[in-house]
């Protein structure tokens, strides 16, 4: 049995994801309100609005509450001297190994919400793939970027 990678991403990631999901569900709310308005204006059967509200509630529950929780619980990573290991996924757990010698460059990225919570996303690119570690504490992300790029430089092998 393989053991999971050890490190978790910042707990504040949960808050950030929930905020993002809330913003998205705001659009559903608008849509839902529109449907209810139309139902009232055109005298449509009542069950249409009931379904709309139900969909809104279910969506909010899953995308604001449940999925971020599972996503956070699942997200693990580990930076070792010769490789980077990631674990992610809600329904399907995906574990990825990225050897350091394959890493071409590392970036950190920060959107407005992430910045507010002092978080950053680290992006690791190989010649063929791009991997993301979302929502790390800024200092940790910065450290990791420097660490990985140092290790990646050492192991310079032909592609």
């Amino acid at each position: 049995m393989l053991l999971q990678p050890q490190k978790r991403i910042s707990e504040r990631a949960l808050t950030v994801w929930r905020i993002t999901a809330t913003i998205y569900s705001f659009f559903t709310l608008l849509l839902c309100g529109g449907i209810i308005a139309l139902t009232i204006i055109f005298d449509w059967p009542i069950w249409i609005s009931v379904i709309a509200v139900l969909i809104l509630l279910i969506e909010s529950y899953f995308f604001i509450y449940l999925f971020p929780r599972i996503k956070w619980k699942r997200w693990r990573y580990e930076v070792r001297e010769q490789e980077l290991e990631l674990q992610q996924g809600i329904f399907i757990v995906k574990r990825t190994l990225v050897p350091m010698i394959r890493v071409q460059h590392v970036d950190t990225r920060q959107g407005p919400i992430l910045r507010k919570y002092d978080l950053a996303t680290v992006t690791v690119s190989t010649a063929a793939t791009i991997h993301e570690i979302p929502a790390l504490e800024v200092e940790e992300a910065e450290e990791m970027r420097i660490y990985i790029s140092k290790l990646a430089r050492v192991a310079d092998e032909d592609v």
Partner: peptide, 11 residues
Amino acid sequence: HKIQTLALKES
């Protein structure tokens, strides 16, 4: 040494 990344997936 030519494989860029390897991933394991399990639902």
